[in-house]
């Protein structure tokens, strides 16, 4: 993946670089080096902690910051109430953590920190990270589903009014679509984040190469690409929020299946 001289490698931004503990940090033979990915997870968590801590003044008449934090908790609370009902209240801490962690990770990964020589890293563009979050959501669905309904949970795979001869086939299809959920959940976020970042990087390479090309049409290409980049940046900010929302929304929909069956 070595970049050519003077060229921009759009994939280099996803490379994981160990920062600490490349040697020796091991648990049961698995290396757990502290990488730039882990660093940005830590930064996301820290920024999120600061954000929520700023809203902990518990004033009767909220200030702006408290208002912002309360609007996020209210948003998650409303989403769970709409999708699950009153039973959804107990999932607010989990869905809030999920949504805010992904949202902050996505947004922080878009910061133009390269201007001051730092390299932002979007760990949500790695399926190893999004997969873990997806599997946690899926595991909670399974645990809640079986704890609440026992083997009756399997009735989730047989919709009401299915004709008897169709039941085995429908059961199989529903089972497969159910089992695909963690993959679609994790892959959707990973693909959306990676695609956006690659697109931005490719456009930025157009800008640089257009200037360096030395042809008359070069700067025109650069300017057009730059304008497009600005628009795509706005789109990426939107995608960052939407993907976090989609992840939280789908998790809450799956939890609804576990809580209420059909």
């Amino acid at each position: 993946m070595a970049a050519e001289e003077g060229k921009v490698d759009p994939m280099h931004q996803f490379a994981i670089e160990p920062l600490l503990g490349t040697e020796g940090w091991e648990i049961a033979g698995y290396n757990i080096a502290f990488t730039n990915s882990a660093l940005w997870m830590l930064i996301s968590a820290a920024v999120l902690l600061l954000f929520v801590a700023g809203g902990m003044k518990r004033q009767l008449v909220p200030g702006r910051w408290q208002m912002a934090v309360e609007s996020f908790t209210g948003f998650i609370d409303g989403m769970l109430a709409a999708n699950i009902g009153p039973a959804g209240k107990k999932y607010v801490p989990y869905i809030f953590s999920l949504f805010m962690f992904i949202l902050f990770a996505n947004l922080l990964g878009l910061l133009p920190l390269a201007l001051i020589g730092l390299h932002p890293f979007t760990f949500t563009s790695h399926f190893t990270a999004t997969g873990v979050l997806a599997i946690i959501s899926f595991a909670i669905v399974l645990v809640v589903g079986f704890a609440k309904h026992g083997f009756h949970f399997f009735s989730l795979f047989v919709p009401h009014g299915t004709p008897l001869p169709m039941i085995p086939l429908i059961f199989l299809i529903e089972l497969v679509s159910f089992l695909v959920r963690p993959f679609s959940l994790g892959l959707r976020l990973f693909v959306a984040m990676m695609a956006g970042h690659v697109l931005l990087e490719v456009l930025s390479s157009f800008v640089i190469n257009g200037i360096n090309a030395g042809v008359a049409i070069g700067p025109v290409v650069s300017i057009l690409s730059f304008v497009l980049m600005i628009a795509i940046c706005a789109l990426e900010l939107l995608v960052a929020a939407i993907q976090a929302y989609v992840f939280a929304l789908l998790s809450s929909l799956y939890l609804n299946d576990a809580e209420n069956l059909h």
């Binding site: 994981i16 160990p18 648990i27 698995y30 290396n31 757990i32 080096a33 502290f34 990488t35 990915s37 882990a38 997870m41 830590l42 996301s44 968590a45 953590s97 962690f101 760990f123 790695h126 190893t128 990270a129 873990v132 979050l133 946690i136």
Partner: peptide, 14 residues
């Protein structure tokens, strides 16, 4: 090389 570290850190931090 990285999956173990990724999984460990995201579990810890999340």
């Amino acid at each position: 090389e990285t999956y173990a570290s990724q999984i460990f850190w995201i579990l810890l931090i999340f």
